[in-house]
Design a protein around this nucleic acid. Structure first.
Lengths: 330, 330
DNA sequence: ATGAAAGCGCTAACAA
DNA sequence: TTGTTAGCGCTTTCAT
């Protein structure tokens, strides 16, 4: 059997309640503190999480519900958050529930049964109204990237609009007139932002939107490749290409290379994320970068705040700017 | 406060031990079973995991320690395992500890403090001898992909040797003589297998091994791109290229396209994984595919077996064959 | 500052 | 088959 506070009590000649107080930062005589710590170190004591949880009703578990672990950006944020939470003594449960609200719902119920102290969605697809007794559980919920519009919870999102707008304007200023856009699935909110940035930049320059230059696709490398190939198979070629997603960027680059087009001579190219890769290419690819580190750090901090001070029950909503990283491809 | 078995007992007029027995599949009169289930449904009862754990010392938590979540193959296996474990009532803790043994060790200690019922490594870098009282904890450990040679635990690995050997032989039979190999980091066991398969195939054909054709690199897209570019920058070009890793394959394909080489005319190409992508390319890429579904399913099954029947304390070691998927690129 | 003791919700041994 | 009861290891009043 594992060491318990009772063992520590016996070894130190103190009462278990004193050991408990010591563990929880209460007032204990310096000499006793020392004695206790010494025995703890010798015996390798670790407080039993079940007994503690039974009393406190806290598990120190955070549930991470995601959309697709296979997306490197999401995976990176998950990694970073896990590290942050662990540093504060919280462990992370994960589940790749897919984009299906029903599946997310059952995962959340599973997490709730595990007594998680909080939940992070990347992004939130499920409607919180689906849970009776959900909010009542009083566990903080944080949505990253996106959430159903009615959902009331902490929310950290990205701003792709501004960098897309300015990068497209940059292309226009450079004389590009046929700017193709490889967008994500129609309707999804990230796509929406990219699309708006693109449209507004054109509008601003009093240029018409040419529907044939906009292609919606899945957020995968293969979809990026296919769509880009199709765009570059046309008789009238675009003179610039904006790939509006992480994985689509890789596919698009494959297509551009396959077509043997000179960058930026014949075609200016702007991608998303893939910072390391973009540096390896020559010419170095210009990319719009999602602030993953910042997002993860803020996510951890926001949730921990909620967890410690039950006081602040209001919801904050943050918007982090994505950044344009100029390469040589435009 | 949440519903407890006491509430169920009161509502049904039965004793809490009867409720407990019902929950744990003991003998209860049919009519009572019905009555209990009805009340459970009405009240939405969920057994308190802390109280249960305190008695049983089981958390129904599995710790997943991985090397790099950003590798799509690993991420996919993690997703699949989580789904499998969840179906059996087990939740998954994760931590992307990196390839560092020390970091893995501290993650394992953290997991142990959370009372995980089992641990899966993808792959195991830490030496189990580093843990005194680790084996004594009697929790099953499973290593995927690789483990320190002395480690005694369940072990599921992949066989890349055979498919690499036969695909290289296939290239040789097709008249290719300068087959370049893009390998992972020197010394790592997956690299070892690929290298051996490559070498043996050459040896078998009584061809010399040309060191200049073998390039070791990190398992990243950018490294794959760089190494492939370097190989294709030579005066004497290879007539075939085998990319021995998932992400390196993507980088290699970018390089091949960039160089505008005709596939398979000038250059035969074989990659790893990336099944969907390989189908999208034209010519369709030939790939060696890791059996992720099978590996994940077996991992879940193996660990659950150990968890239920404390009887079988012997260790099994499985080796799953990777499969060669012929495309049009050779 | 320290100790004694109640009890969190559950399981399991024993009694009926 | 069902009920009674004793803890599992911890936190937390309430005395001391």
């Amino acid at each position: 059997m594992a060491i318990t506070i009772k063992d520590i009590a016996v070894q130190t000649g103190l009462a278990i309640s004193t050991i408990s107080k010591y563990l929880n930062g209460g007032n204990v005589l310096p000499e006793n503190r020392e004695k206790i710590q010494k025995v703890i170190d010798e015996l390798g004591f670790n407080a039993n999480v079940f007994a503690r949880g039974l009393k406190t009703n806290k598990s120190h578990l955070i549930g991470l519900v995601m959309d697709s672990l296979e997306d490197a950006t999401q995976a990176r944020i998950v990694s970073l958050m896990e590290e942050g939470f662990r540093r504060h003594g919280y462990a992370c449960l994960i589940s790749d529930a897919g984009a299906d609200p029903l599946s997310q719902k059952s995962v959340v119920e599973f997490f709730l049964a595990q007594n998680v102290d909080g939940i992070v969605f990347l992004p939130m697809m499920v409607n919180m109204n689906d849970f009776e007794g959900y909010i009542e559980k009083e566990i903080p919920v944080l949505a990253l990237f996106d959430k159903p519009s009615e959902a009331e919870c902490d929310f950290i999102t990205l701003d792709d609009y501004v960098p897309v707008f300015s990068s497209v304007r940059h292309l226009l200023n450079g004389g590009r007139r046929r700017i193709a856009l490889l967008a994500g699935p129609e309707g999804d909110s990230a796509t929406e932002q990219v699309l708006r940035g693109y449209q507004e930049a054109l509008k601003n320059a009093r240029l018409p939107l040419e529907p044939a230059l906009v292609s919606y696709g899945e957020r995968t490398t293969e979809s990026g490749y296919e769509r880009a190939m199709r765009l570059l198979d046309r008789d009238v070629l675009p003179d610039a290409l904006l790939a509006g997603d992480n994985r689509m960027t890789v596919g698009a680059m494959m297509a551009v290379m396959r077509k043997g087009m000179s960058v930026p001579g014949e075609l200016a190219v702007i991608g998303f994320d893939n910072v390391l890769l973009s540096q390896s290419l020559s010419p170095r690819l210009s990319v719009i970068v999602h602030p993953t580190e910042k997002m993860a750090a803020l996510a951890v901090q926001t949730l921990l705040d909620k967890l410690s001070s039950s006081a602040s029950r209001y919801c904050q909503s943050l918007r982090l700017p994505s950044e344009f990283m100029m390469g040589e491809s435009i």
